[in-house]
Design a protein around this nucleic acid. Structure first.
Lengths: 168, 168
DNA sequence: TGAAAGTACTTTAAGCCTAAACTACTTTTC
DNA sequence: GAAAAGTAGTTTAGGCTTAAAGTACTTTCA
């Protein structure tokens, strides 16, 4: 039943909400978005400065690194949550840098398997190590239990979002 | 004290970590990123489908809606966490749609004030209402207390990230 | 007061990203 | 087994985004 401050959150807001009002949900979304953007912009900046690489390229390499036998473009686009056309372009650019290779699928001639080259694996290993430290540095103020709670609740939110989207 | 499922988190990971290993932090970041992308992609899709508008344009209008007297392009780019050049382009497109207006700053001739037109205010009001419901629909599975905890912890994370970036 | 430094914004070049239309191939169905 | 439906990937057109360089104006300070 408290009034809202300029920037602070208010756990009791829902109680006083008018029907159809979802300010608290909106605030959570804006906070999630802002936090994400803050991190993403900084990671982008550092990847460029330190390794002259873009975040989408780093992300694509990270996906491939987990699958030594490679994966199809379609699987890549699903995992990266982007369109096929987007992956086509990224793959072209990474092929030109010789950090990935592409070969025909054995049985399905529409399909192609891409995987990291040796050069790609080496390059990615260096980047991944620093990247991990950057993230740890940014997350340093959270305690272990806050960490665990946040990870758990985000998992729950993710499930809720997936279901909310599926239903319409 | 829970054991890890195939996809679930593991609160005890840190204890067993090798020095210099930050898998738990990385997992939190990936989960934050995935959740954000999931929501953002869906909001983008619905804004396009329902109102034929892009997320950046919606976002810019949302910023202006909170400031009836308008704001400068620089203030917009700060709040939206994008570059000045980006805002220049967005403003051009929104001017062409006549949902915002731009006028010279009274005392500083380098500066311009943009604000929503009447048409823009009307359009935004309609969109904002549905947008709020979309978010609420996606977040529906969280309890009130989970909601409050998540909002609080994200606030803390945001502060940690800001500080982590500032220190370098 | 006038040169130097700084600020607000724009322009440019290049990469990212999407939806929609397309090509080539595979699977289903009758 | 051939037409229809479906799938993997590419192309295209257009918008978003950035870093870096440029223009026009304002502030600082010697």
């Amino acid at each position: 039943m408290e009034l809202e401050q300029a920037t602070a959150l208010d756990a009791e807001t829902k109680i006083a909400e008018a029907p159809g009002d979802h300010k608290a949900e909106l605030r959570l979304w804006l906070r999630l978005l802002a936090t994400n953007t803050l991190i993403e912009n900084e990671i982008r900046r550092r990847l460029r400065e330190r390794f002259d690489v873009t975040l989408p390229r780093f992300d694509l390499m990270a996906q491939l690194e987990r699958k030594p036998h490679g994966m199809t473009l379609g699987e890549l686009s699903q995992r990266m949550m982007v369109t096929n056309g987007n992956v086509t372009g990224l793959v072209d650019r990474l092929l030109a840098e010789e950090v990935i290779s592409r070969k025909q699928h054995k049985s399905d001639r529409r399909s192609h398997i891409v995987s990291l080259t040796e050069k790609g694996r080496r390059q990615f290993a260096k980047m991944a190590k620093e990247h991990e430290n950057w993230i740890a540095g940014m997350f340093g103020e959270l305690s272990q239990s806050e960490f665990a709670t946040l990870t758990k609740l985000l998992g729950k939110l993710k499930t809720s979002v997936r279901n909310g989207i599926a239903q319409n």
